[in-house]
Design a protein around this nucleic acid. Structure first.
Lengths: 84, 84
DNA sequence: CATCATTTGTTCGTATGTATC
DNA sequence: CGATACATACGAACAAATGAT
């Protein structure tokens, strides 16, 4: 499930690569609407990057309407059915 | 209160323009001795510049004795009354 | 009710690479 | 070349709310 290693030499920033994997996972149904995506520490460890990088990725998901973040709770997948 | 947009075409570097605004704010009493000036992220957003640029501005304030910076806490206005 | 682990928020320090003037 | 500026990324530390036990 998109668990290939990140390409540290790519022109695509790490945070974008991670965002792409998360989006893929969401659209693939790994996490459905209302469910929480992995926490920052979890993603940090999974991808072997700094927390800031993970946060940038999640921020991207938030900005693109894939998730909403609840402080101290996590980021939850949004229902995109009405976002066409 | 010095909230005009920065002049990206000026001969005066952006970090100096930001420093000037901060100094103006300090001397104007926006932040008194002991109080913290806005954080780097806040200033970054407020002025629409890179963090490095903000850091250069704050470094200038530090070098000129306006503030002292505490790692992970912020930059605090110094009491300049006895610096004549 | 108290305690503890989890989780996101915030903040400064540092480094690298790129681009421009 | 040096100064300025942006983007990305890692590190470290503490705060504060939440939820489970």
């Amino acid at each position: 499930m998109s668990d290939d290693a990140l390409d540290h030499d790519s022109l695509v920033p790490l945070y974008r690569q991670i965002a792409a994997r998360l989006i893929h996972g969401i659209e693939h149904g790994d996490w459905v609407a209302g469910k929480r995506i992995p926490s920052e520490p979890t993603l940090t460890q999974r991808y072997g990057v700094a927390r800031e990088t993970v946060r940038a990725a999640v921020r991207h998901l938030r900005n693109t309407g894939y998730v909403h973040t609840v402080p101290k709770r996590g980021s939850f997948v949004l229902d995109r059915t009405r976002h066409d």
